[in-house]
């Protein structure tokens, strides 16, 4: 479903992601845990390009969302002038390995020659999909809900599907009724969102994303901004979704929940995936010392 290939993300001189690769498979639920500031949100936001990776590629449903990263394609490297200069004196495979390891491709793309540019362009055109189209298939839920305050509860849900021509107004509002009933907000459908509690807002945010009928849902600490008594109602909605087979990626500090619903857990630390595995393995027998330390703190 989603493939993240060797992404790096710099904010100015701050390198936040430093070579992250992972794959989210169809129907899978993956939790991302790790210390605050380790790059969890940035990784999640790179999946739908709310952050553009500095290097590396993101793929969704077999489509390329980012520009082509030449280092990920041997064909591209082979078409470069740098490769041609090296391949005279060494094996092809060695030249490719050396170019990757030492980051030898020139910054200025045209300097690597016409063939190089042509191969890059071909790969891009064969695989690229417009980000706005891709995002329609990826729902996102934010820590701070980001409900639209100027629209009614129903309009929050119907806005995108109607504007994007996915449904007529009538279809969308019918769908909104169904979704609101599913999360127990039917009686709120005509109110303005600022009348809702935090837990209700987050439930609304979840169904707003579901109205686009996404293939995957991304959750960025969906319960971190909630009062403790409202955490349960939101987790319940997410749990139902995951049980229903929705492909999901969840950044969370709710370790009990992550352990319960995830098929796989990624431990992110210092901008890399320091450990990954099934929840039972990672929570009970962490191999990475930083993961062990982190878990001993949060599970205490």
């Amino acid at each position: 479903m989603i493939e993240v290939k060797n992404i790096y993300k710099n904010f100015g001189s701050n390198s936040v992601l430093r070579g992250v690769s992972c794959e989210i498979r169809d129907g899978e639920c993956v939790s991302i845990i790790g210390p605050s500031g380790s790059g969890k949100s940035t990784l999640l936001r790179c999946m739908n390009l709310l952050e553009e990776p500095t290097w590396g590629e993101v793929w969704m449903g077999g489509k390329l969302l980012t520009p082509v990263d030449p280092y990920l394609h041997p064909d591209v490297i082979r078409a470069s002038r740098t490769f041609r200069a090296l391949s005279g004196s060494m094996e092809e495979a060695d030249a490719i390995r050396k170019i990757k390891a030492e980051d030898l491709l020139r910054e200025k793309r045209a300097a690597e020659g016409k063939d190089y540019l042509a191969v890059m362009k071909r790969i891009y055109e064969e695989n690229h999909q417009d980000i706005d189209v891709s995002r329609q298939k990826m729902g996102m839920v934010f820590q701070h809900f980001n409900i639209f305050p100027h629209l009614s509860v129903t309009e929050n849900i119907t806005l995108a599907p109607v504007l994007l021509g996915k449904m007529t107004k009538e279809e969308a509002s019918e769908r909104a009724d169904e979704l609101l009933a599913r999360v127990g907000l039917s009686d709120k459908k005509d109110t303005k969102p600022n009348m809702l509690s935090g837990g209700q807002k987050q439930r609304l945010a979840i169904v707003r994303a579901l109205a686009m009928e996404p293939e995957v849902m991304l959750f960025d600490e969906p319960t971190s901004a909630l009062d403790p008594e409202m955490v349960g109602e939101v987790l319940e909605v997410i749990r139902d979704l995951v049980k229903g087979g929705m492909t999901s990626v969840i950044v969370t500090h709710e370790m009990g929940f992550a352990r319960e619903v995830s098929d796989r857990v990624l431990f992110v630390d210092g901008g890399v995936i320091a450990e990954e595995g099934a929840p039972s393995e990672l929570f009970d027998h962490p191999q990475n010392p930083r993961a062990a330390e982190f878990l001993s703190k949060v599970l205490r």
Binding site: D132, R135, Q136, M138, H144, F148, A160, L163, A205
Partner: peptide, 21 residues
């Protein structure tokens, strides 16, 4: 900025997000 991000994450393009949200 979260308002813009929510609009874009739903698949709305930048001008629609600007105009409607």
């Amino acid at each position: 900025i979260g308002q813009t991000e929510a609009g874009r994450a739903l698949g709305l393009n930048s001008s629609t997000t600007m105009i409607r949200i």
